[in-house]
Design a binder for these strands. Structure first.
Lengths: 197, 197
DNA sequence: CGTTGCATGTAAGGTGTTACATGATTAC
DNA sequence: GTAATCATGTAACACCTTACATGCAACG
């Protein structure tokens, strides 16, 4: 239907996606929900970004707004997806090329620079990353349990299952890295000083 | 040492990190190398971005440039990290807070919206993502083999090992998702139409 | 009565991308 | 000779974040 010369940024479709589950939600709601869902496999936009996207989606007719309580300004403004919005979202899923997945992991970047950081620092970093991974596993597990209880099988549940597996692998990969590095005598690791010598 | 009111963007440290291995490299070299290393666990900046960062790093005194062949303009310009650059990098690793890891996966975003996409579309998407995962595993394996052969144990090798495990887990998670979804009768999945009914 | 949470939005600025411009060298 | 690769860089723009501004409601 809508011939868009340039499609929305992915954030736009993510917000539209959150609304595609059928509920009327405010910008504030959307932020909270994305922190508990999108965050694990995509990313959670800043609240100001969400407000901006909602404005754009409204202008495109993909969502409609309503004030709560009715007629009062500056209180709670909830959004609902329109049929055009669902069409646009379906069109994006169907026709837009799927961008390659990206992992941005600063901890790994620092491990990779171990010849600058030193073995002790790297080991500490990895240990703390394992902690972080455990927390993430707990968070995802929690989301998954709730989703399964209240909704039964769902696409969201499948994705959470995926995330749980992935987070677990992450933890194990760090644990193995730590074991390997621990057992390696310091001189076995090529340091910058050696490399430049 | 260097009191920076605002630190570099992470890209800057990534470029500095590529140079911290001690070789003299051009912007073009850096791009190619980052495509074969950083890409798997951080991300590979656009070539124009790399040129920009090199300029900034040079102004800060973290790298020095040299023309090749000597004295000829507009040919090949290689960069070398300075001691100040190593200090800045070490300072970043030591003192800057480690940002939470981010996974940006458009395929999962679409699976999550399966109630809009439909089961068939999701299954196709997952299958193609499995293919992508296999290619990634092959790429990382290749990098890892070369690194291990030529360098012996190294931090870069440890990170590649990590990436290989992670990529494998990714493949398995998609395979399991596909099996689960395949065995699920279509009506068991809550669709948008049902949700709104 | 002060902090936290709810709630919305604007403005400025940083980061990074695509598109463009340029030109040499190498391979077919 | 012409296409691909090597090689560098600028300009315009999209995207997103932080900081700021505002105000109500609930909790202690």
């Amino acid at each position: 239907m809508g011939e868009r010369t340039r499609p929305l940024p992915t954030t736009g479709y993510a917000v539209l996606g959150l609304l595609s589950f059928g509920e009327e939600l405010s910008g504030y709601d959307l932020k909270k929900w994305s922190d508990h869902s999108l965050r694990f496999f995509y990313w959670s936009p800043a609240i100001s970004n969400i407000y901006g996207e909602l404005k754009r989606l409204q202008q495109l007719g993909y969502v409609v707004a309503r004030e709560l309580p009715e007629g009062s300004p500056r209180n709670r403004r909830v959004y609902r997806i329109t049929d055009e919005g669902v069409d646009a979202l379906a069109g994006w899923i169907e026709h837009e090329p799927v961008e390659a997945p990206v992992l941005k992991d600063q901890a790994l970047l620092r491990v990779w620079l171990g010849h600058v950081a030193g073995k002790d620092r790297v080991l500490a970093l990895v240990a703390s990353e394992e902690e972080q991974a455990r927390r993430m596993i707990a968070d995802v597990s929690h989301s998954l349990e709730r989703a399964t209880e209240t909704m039964g099988p769902s696409y969201a549940g499948l994705v959470e299952q995926w995330c749980l597996r992935y987070a677990t692998a992450r933890l194990e990969a760090f644990a193995e890295l730590r074991r390997t590095l621990s057992s390696l005598p310091e001189p076995a690791i090529r340091t910058r000083r050696e490399a430049l010598a």
